[in-house]
Simulated scan of single mutants.
Amino acid sequence: MNEILQKRSVLAPGTASDRDAAIREAGGLLREAGAVTAAYVESMLEREASVSTYMGNLLAIPHGTNEAKGDILASALSFVRYDRPIDWGGNEVRFVVGIAGRGDEHLEILSKIAMIFSDGDAVERLLALPDAAALHAELSRAVEP
C-alpha cells in the first residue's frame, strides 16, 4: 500500500447517525483498504469507551487500543465527512478520521491533519467541498511531504 489515505478510504457523506456507528464506518473503511482486521475496529470502540477521541473543531480521530497493534496490517487513514453533526459525548463532530498506524509512518500525516483542523477557515473549506473525490484531492495536497 503506497498511500496512507487512499481515495476509496474517503467518504462524503457518511451514513452513520451516532458515535459508535461513525467509528464502525471509519473502521470499516480501514478494513476495506486491507489495513486492519475486524478485531481492530472493535478495539476502536473499546478505546472510545475509556477515553474520547474528540479533538475539537468538529473532528474526532478514533483509533484502536495498544493491545490491538497486532491487528494492524498496514498504516492507513480513513476520512469521513457527515452532513449532519454526530453527537460525540456532547460535542458536534462532522469529520471522523480513522487511524491505523504501524511504526511512525502515519504520524506526520496525522500531524498535518491536526494543523488543518486547527484553522477554522480550512475546516469551513472542507465542509464546502462537493464530494469525497474533492475531499481526497484537497487532503492529499495538504498532507503531501
Results as ranks from 00 to 15, higher is better:
M1Q: 09
M1R: 09
N2W: 06
E3P: 13
E3F: 09
L5W: 13
Q6H: 01
K7Y: 10
K7I: 07
R8S: 15
L11C: 13
A12V: 09
P13Q: 09
P13M: 12
G14C: 13
G14H: 07
S17N: 09
S17M: 03
D18R: 04
D18Y: 02
R19I: 02
A21F: 08
I23C: 04
E25C: 08
G27P: 03
L29D: 04
E32C: 14
A33F: 11
A33H: 05
G34K: 06
V36C: 12
T37Q: 09
A38W: 06
A39S: 10
A39H: 08
Y40I: 07
E42D: 04
R47S: 08
E48N: 05
A49S: 03
S50T: 03
S52P: 01
S52Q: 02
T53C: 07
Y54A: 01
L58M: 03
L59S: 00
A60T: 01
I61R: 04
P62K: 02
H63N: 03
H63T: 06
G64R: 08
T65S: 06
N66L: 07
E67N: 10
A68G: 05
A68L: 03
A68S: 08
D71C: 09
I72W: 09
I72F: 06
L73N: 07
L77S: 14
S78N: 01
F79C: 04
F79K: 06
V80D: 12
R81Y: 15
Y82C: 11
R84I: 12
R84A: 11
P85N: 11
I86D: 01
I86N: 01
W88M: 04
W88L: 08
G89R: 09
F95S: 02
F95Q: 05
V96K: 07
A100I: 06
G101D: 10
R102N: 15
R102T: 14
R102M: 12
R102S: 14
R102E: 15
G103S: 10
G103K: 02
D104Y: 03
E108K: 10
E108H: 11
I109Y: 12
I109V: 14
L110N: 01
S111F: 05
S111E: 07
I113T: 03
A114I: 00
M115E: 07
I116G: 02
I116M: 00
I116P: 05
F117M: 08
F117E: 00
D119H: 10
D121Y: 12
A122N: 04
V123C: 01
V123T: 02
R125L: 12
R125D: 14
L127S: 14
L127Q: 15
A128I: 14
L129P: 11
P130N: 12
P130C: 12
P130D: 13
A134C: 11
L135G: 13
R141H: 15
V143K: 08
V143I: 14
E144F: 12
P145T: 06
